[in-house]
């Protein structure tokens, strides 16, 4: 047990091996994955998020939303994400290509948010933006019993000077949240960015690899079933 040089060599060899196997090999494949160019639409997918949504991604990151929300949809049959309406299809590596920080998350204290921009959560048939403002201001308004904390610090209560702001949201709030007379509640820039980000979250493009799912092999049927999964 005294051959320390051998010990050092062994340690570095093992480190290099796990580094190569786990990181380097994948860096050459998934790490170098290109976008898919769709000739029909003349666009490359995934599409970059609008600038305001990218800024919202930073707000999402700094508030630690990832502590409770995942952003990965598991395939049909592995959990029931699809039955919960968390996405039309499971997430694939290409969905995350352009994200500066990939926050797929490890805890589901709240629902998955990968396709929250696509969900018809905007009850009362309104723009989803207003639903999100109410939800962030007081989650109990939209989701009674939720353990999500309110994010009232993303809103500003201020005196109305001149014309009331067109962005004011107090009309969406119940009586007990109304500001004093002559005041209005407006979302801060960060709230606007965050909601823009949430509304931009949708993975709808059907990448070819999204069809790479196992289908129970019964002859003659497998091809058709795989086609179905492609949609």
């Amino acid at each position: 047990m005294n051959r320390i040089a051998l010990l050092f060599l062994g340690l570095f060899a093992a480190l290099a091996a796990s580094w190569t196997g786990v990181i380097l090999v994948n860096q050459g494949s998934v790490g170098a994955l290109p976008r898919v160019v769709d000739a029909n639409e003349g666009l490359a997918f995934p599409q970059p998020l609008p600038g305001v949504a990218q800024q919202g991604h930073l707000v999402y990151q700094d508030l630690g939303c990832v502590a409770c929300h995942t952003q990965q949809v598991r395939r049909a049959g592995f959990g029931i994400d699809n039955k919960r309406g968390w996405g039309e299809r499971h997430s694939v590596a290409r969905d995350y290509l352009l994200e500066p920080r990939v926050l797929i998350g490890t805890h589901r204290i709240g629902p998955d948010l990968r396709n929250v921009g696509q969900r018809k959560d905007g009850q009362e048939g309104r723009d989803g933006r207003e639903w999100h403002y109410r939800h962030l201001y007081d989650p109990q308004l939209t989701s009674p019993g939720s353990v999500m904390p309110p994010f009232r610090f993303l809103f500003e209560t201020r005196r109305i000077v001149g014309e009331p702001s067109p962005k004011a949201i107090q009309a969406l709030l119940p009586a007990w949240h109304q500001p004093p007379a002559g005041h209005e509640i407006v979302p801060t820039v960060r709230a606007e960015r965050l909601v823009s980000y949430l509304l931009s979250l949708k993975d709808t493009y059907a990448y070819p690899e999204a069809a790479n799912v196992y289908v129970a092999q019964t002859e003659g049927q497998s091809g058709a079933a795989a086609e179905g999964a492609h949609k």
């Binding site: 796990s18 786990v22 990181i23 998934v30 995350y96 994200e99 920080r101 990939v102």
Partner: peptide, 17 residues
């Protein structure tokens, strides 16, 4: 940052180590 899902791979490699 590495691209896309390489990030969770590196992250689990690190936290596990």
């Amino acid at each position: 940052p590495v691209q896309g899902v390489m990030q969770p791979l590196v992250q689990t490699w690190y936290t596990h180590s």
